[in-house]
Amino acid sequence: MSVPLYQAKADFFRLLAHPVRIRALELLQHGPMPVRDLLAAIEVEPSILSQQLALLRRSGIVTSQREGSTVVYALASGDVADLLQAARRILTEMLTGQNELLAELRETEVAAR
C-alpha cells in the first residue's frame, strides 16, 4: 500500500522541522561546505550536527563526499534552495501582515484614549 501524497508531504516537512537542519540547509544554499565550517556557523555540539546531517543525507536531501579527512556536504537538488527561498517569502508576507495588524491595533488603542 502506498502512502498518500499529503502524508508524504507531511513527512517531508517534518523531516525539515528542526532548527539545526534548516540552518545547515540555508548554509548549503551557497554551495558545498565542509563539516567544520558548518559546525563553526551553526555552533552546536558536533554530535548533534552529525546526527542532523546524517538524517538529511539518508533522506536524500543532502549529499556528502569525503575529501581526505574532511567530509563536505552539499544540497542534492536546487529545489531545496528554492523551497527555502519560498519559505522566506511566505514568512515575510506573514510577518508584514502581522505588523500591519499590530499598527492598526495600536492606532485604535490610541484613538480610544
Score class of each variant (00 low, 15 high):
Ile48Lys: 06
Ile48Asn: 05
Leu49His: 03
Ser50Asp: 10
Gln51Met: 02
Leu53Asn: 03
Leu53Asp: 01
Leu53Cys: 10
Leu53Ala: 04
Ala54Gly: 08
Leu55Asp: 09
Leu56His: 04
Leu56Tyr: 06
Arg58Gly: 05
Arg58Met: 08
Arg58Ile: 01
Ile61Tyr: 06
Val62Met: 03
Val62Cys: 11
Thr63Ser: 10
Ser64Met: 08
Ser64Tyr: 03
Gln65Leu: 07
Gln65Gly: 11
Gln65Tyr: 04
Gln65Thr: 09
Glu67Val: 13
Glu67Ala: 11
Gly68Trp: 04
Gly68Asp: 03
Ser69Cys: 00
Ser69Ala: 13
Ser69Pro: 00
Thr70Ser: 10
Thr70Arg: 15
Thr70Pro: 00
Val71Pro: 01
Val72Met: 06
Tyr73Cys: 05
Ala74Ser: 15
Ala74Glu: 13
Ala76Lys: 08
Ala76Arg: 13
Ser77Leu: 04
Asp79Arg: 14
Asp79Cys: 05
Val80Cys: 09
Val80Trp: 02
Ala81Gly: 14
Asp82Thr: 07
Asp82Ser: 10
Leu83Arg: 05
Leu84Asn: 06
Ala86Gln: 14
Ala87Arg: 05
Ala87Ile: 02
Ala87Pro: 00
Arg88Lys: 12
Arg88Gln: 14
Arg89Tyr: 09
Ile90His: 12
Ile90Tyr: 12
Leu91Tyr: 08
Thr92Ser: 15
Thr92His: 13
Thr92Phe: 11
Thr92Asp: 14
Met94Ala: 15
Met94Phe: 05
Met94Pro: 00
Leu95Ser: 10
Leu95His: 12
Leu95Asp: 09
Gly97Glu: 13
Gly97Val: 04
Gly97Lys: 09
Gly97Tyr: 05
Gln98Asp: 11
Asn99Ser: 15
Leu102Glu: 03
Leu102Gly: 04
Leu102Ser: 13
Ala103Asn: 13
Ala103Lys: 13
Glu104Cys: 06
Glu104Arg: 15
Glu104Phe: 08
